[in-house]
């Protein structure tokens, strides 16, 4: 009887340690992010690839199932602004940049649950074909809870963290070969009510 109890206790402890540590490790990643960083944006060279290590594969399964491999699409994800502060739905941000080197691109905001953030405007993203541009061809996208003139992605009414995913469809050859050298938009933190 004592042995059975001991075995059971050992199994429960091992289960919590083993499965718990696996889930904890995987939860750390921001969706489609990875080891390659450009400012606050990160990506993984192995997304969708058969060469992906088991941890990358599991992380992508959780935060980016059915993502394409990088010759077709590069997915960059940001969980912080340029200063390294986590993106929060109550704060306002400006994404400032020029078109990245791809046939088509878009920036989409996702809640902490990896799904689109509910908002009355039903507006979740802007793409290279849909956004308003500055006179010099560059763009500014406002992300935050309060309405802004121009390109505005609302972050809804619930308090929480969020992430941004930048998709580069059919990236240029140089970009696909070395995503770390792509020039990407800045994410400037603005007002953040305490």
């Amino acid at each position: 009887m004592k042995l059975v109890l001991k075995l059971l206790a050992s199994f429960v402890v091992a289960l919590v340690l083993g499965v718990g540590s696996a889930l904890l490790l995987l939860r750390g990643g921001a969706g489609l992010g990875g080891a390659i960083a450009v400012g606050p944006w990160t990506t993984s060279a192995e997304t969708g690839s058969a060469d992906a290590d088991p941890y990358t594969r599991a992380r992508i399964a959780i935060g980016g199932l059915l993502a394409l491999s990088r010759s077709e699409t590069i997915y960059f994800t940001a969980a912080t602004d340029d200063a390294g502060a986590p993106l929060r739905t109550r704060c306002a941000y400006r994404i400032i940049g020029t078109d990245p080197p791809a046939r088509w691109w878009s920036i989409t905001a996702y809640g902490a649950d990896h799904f689109l953030i509910p908002n009355p405007q039903d507006r979740y993203s802007f793409g290279g074909n849909t956004l308003a541009r500055e006179d010099d061809g560059s763009f500014v996208i406002f992300v935050g809870p309060a309405a802004a003139d121009g390109n505005w992605i609302p972050t809804g009414e619930k308090e929480g963290t969020f992430t941004l995913t930048l998709r580069l469809y059919n990236p240029n050859e140089d970009a696909a070969r070395d995503p770390s050298r792509i020039e990407l938009p800045r994410i400037a933190g603005e007002a953040c009510p305490s």
Partner: peptide, 29 residues
């Protein structure tokens, strides 16, 4: 021996979780 056994079992369960998770998530999808 009990502690060592528990750690080894935890490591095995950790690896199994990492390998099985993508299959489980795909199955659900």
């Amino acid at each position: 021996i009990w502690i060592a056994g528990t750690i080894v079992l935890a490591a095995v369960l950790h690896i199994l979780t990492i390998f099985a998770l993508p299959y489980g998530i795909m199955d659900r999808a």
